[in-house]
Every structure is written in structure tokens, then in C-alpha cells.
Design a protein around this nucleic acid. Structure first.
Lengths: 142, 142
DNA sequence: AAAATTTATTTGTATATACAAATAAAATGT
DNA sequence: ACATTTTATTTGTATATACAAATAAATTTT
């Protein structure tokens, strides 16, 4: 059954959740080649581009909770892609050389992911959808 | 930081996931009064309206995997709100009297939830957003 | 009718994320 | 300078969901 055929097709709860799960899957496939989940990949890209960035700022950028950022960093650290250097109550996160090497591939995956949904909805409609979602997201800020 | 200020603000991955999490939370608050998560509440509403419905059909309607439906039903069964009656390889799910009694309250919660996001985006814009999300969801079917 | 396949559901385990409490450092008030 | 409060991060635990394998019944093939 398609989302648009479900009895709750007009309910934002379903639309938002169903879409998020499918996008998660699509993104997961896009990043499969670097063997990272989308969240890990995005975090790594930010860390490469902003050496020393701290978990709190990563949480803001990624719209995730600090505790979730800790978990993501832990995994990237296990994979030797980033390191954490504590500095007082703060923590600075840096990409390792191995991590940095991944950047071109990560960018490729990102581009591939963008393509995959723009091909479906079109560039303009995709952008409008994203804008609408952000608008509601911003209002639900909390 | 707002979703629209993040460096990945134009990326569907973030928009979709951030929105889904915030909607999950908003819906959770709406259904708090019946002490059910949104998914449990929707499942229960369907079961009340369609006595004997089977897990596979519930999975279709709710855009969830059958294994997830099993887990949701288990919890509702613990709470004595539904019962499962096996019939060959299929399973029929029925609301108990206690479960049925909840229907008016559930409908109220649903209405309250709709209100809460329509107040933010407006009825028309909300509907358009939902339609756009469903369209992409349908194309990502699989 | 026995064997093979398909269908419906469940079970064990995994992923993504959050909440609440704990820790620890920094900043502020007195 | 000490006590209090605030800020940044981590840790323990919980929720929502999925994947893959297991089970078991029904259907199809031979």
C-alpha cells in the first residue's frame, strides 16, 4: 500500500515518519560505499571542514541531541576517523588523516543522494518540500 | 539553532528526519492523556474500527513492517486493550471492551494533534506539505 | 498425497535517537 | 576565596523501528 492510500494519508504523523524512514534508507544506500550511516557521514564531513568543532555545535548543526553526538563520535573514533581532545569542560573533535582522506568520497555520496530524490520530485519541488519541512520544524523548535 | 540555519538545511535527509522527530514529540504530547504512543494509538483506532484486522493489513495501513506491528500489538495486549485470536497462519486482532471505550478520547487526541500543526502552518499549507511528502514516499516505495 | 513453494506472523537482534542523571569544568555571586 | 549556578559532555537506560531468520499454515506442483 502506498502512503497516499493509507487511511491516515492526511495525517502529518504518518507522512513525516514514513518519509523519514524511506529517506533514511535511501541515504543509507547512498553512503553504503564508505560504510558509514548518513549521520556518521554528515558528522565526519563537518568535522573535516571545521577542525576542533565541539559536540554542542555538532548537535546544533545536525539537529540532534548532545548525547546522540557523543554516540556518533564514539563510533567514528573506533574507526579511527576522528579523535577527541578534551579541553576543560569542552571537547574538540578532529578528523584523523584517514578521516580526511574520505572527504572526496563523502561529497560524491552526498551528490548522489541529492540526485536520487531530485530525479523523483524535480529540483524545484524538492526544494519547496525541504523549505516547507524546515518551516514547520523551526516552529516546533523546543 | 533552527533547522533552516543548519549547514545542511537544503538536504532532505535533515529536513525529513528533524521534522519527523519533532512531529513524533508533538504527537506524543497530544496522546499523552491516554498514555499511549502515537503508533499504539493509531493502531488501536484502526483495530476498533476494523475488528479482526490482521497484522499484515495493519502494517500496510500504518506504513510499518509486520515485525513492528507484532511489537505494538504485544504492548496493547499487555494493557488489555486488544486481543489476538490466531486463525491458521493468520491472526485476528480485536479491541477489548476497555479498548473500545477509549475511542472518543483517541479521536479527541487526534483532533488536537491536527490543530496543533495546522495552527502553525495553516490548513492549506499543511495539506500541501503532507501531499508532497506522500508523493515522494510513494516513489520511494520498496 | 507428498514435496515444494508461498504467505503470515513472530522472535532475536540491531540501528537511530532521546531522556534523565551523573560528572566535571567554568563563570558568577557574595 | 568559597559557594552557587551554569555550561559541556558523557553515561545509563529507554523508545521506535527494522532486518533476518525461524516458525507454521496454506497453496501449488508433481
Amino acid at each position: 500500500m502506498k502512503a497516499s492510500e493509507s487511511r491516515y494519508r492526511k495525517c502529518m504523523y504518518f507522512s513525516a515518519n514514513a518519509l523519514a524512514r524511506k529517506i533514511e534508507k535511501l541515504a543509507g544506500e547512498s553512503w553504503g560505499v564508505v560504510n558509514l550511516s548518513p549521520s556518521h557521514a554528515y558528522l565526519l564531513m563537518i568535522v573535516i571542514e571545521e577542525p576542533g568543532i565541539q559536540p554542542g555545535m555538532l548537535a546544533n548543526e545536525l539537529q540532534l541531541k548532545p548525547s546522540t553526538i557523543t554516540r556518533l563520535i564514539e563510533k567514528l573514533e573506533e574507526k579511527k576517523l576522528v579523535v577527541r581532545i578534551a579541553e576543560g569542560k569542552a571537547t574538540n573533535v578532529y578528523a584523523t588523516p584517514t578521516g580526511k582522506e574520505l572527504l572526496p568520497k563523502l561529497k560524491e555520496c552526498l551528490a548522489k543522494f541529492y540526485e536520487s530524490y531530485k530525479n523523483i520530485l524535480g529540483t524545484k519541488e524538492s526544494a519547496e518540500l525541504v523549505t516547507g519541512m524546515n518551516k514547520l520544524s523551526d516552529e516546533l523548535e523546543g
